[in-house]
């Protein structure tokens, strides 16, 4: 029964972080939420007895994708609407 409660809590947290990633005003916050979501997904995979996916999700979802996104966010912030070289 406690397991079920824990699972319920995890699912709630999953959905909450997902909503955060979707709805956050601030892009940086959204990406952070997404990384948290990846970590929680990794836990969820463990609970679904899928350790392989959990491992991959931890490295990818939380790690690699997170870094890629964070890097992109910082890039997009650094140069607001500067590109003039529109070529065709």
């Amino acid at each position: 029964m406690t397991e079920l409660w824990l699972d319920g809590l995890l699912v709630c947290a999953l959905l909450a972080t997902a909503a955060g990633a979707l709805l956050s005003r601030d892009l940086f916050r959204a990406v952070v939420m997404f990384i948290a979501f990846g970590l929680l997904m990794s836990l969820a995979w463990v609970r679904l007895r899928a350790p392989d996916i959990a491992l991959a999700e931890a490295i990818i979802g939380a790690g690699l994708s997170g870094v890629l996104f964070l890097d992109a966010v910082s890039h997009l912030r650094r140069r607001p609407a500067g590109g003039a070289a529109e070529d065709d």
Partner: peptide
């Protein structure tokens, strides 16, 4: 056991 090429590569 759990692990393999993809996880290793991602790491």
């Amino acid at each position: 056991r759990p692990g393999g090429a993809f996880q290793a590569g991602a790491l």
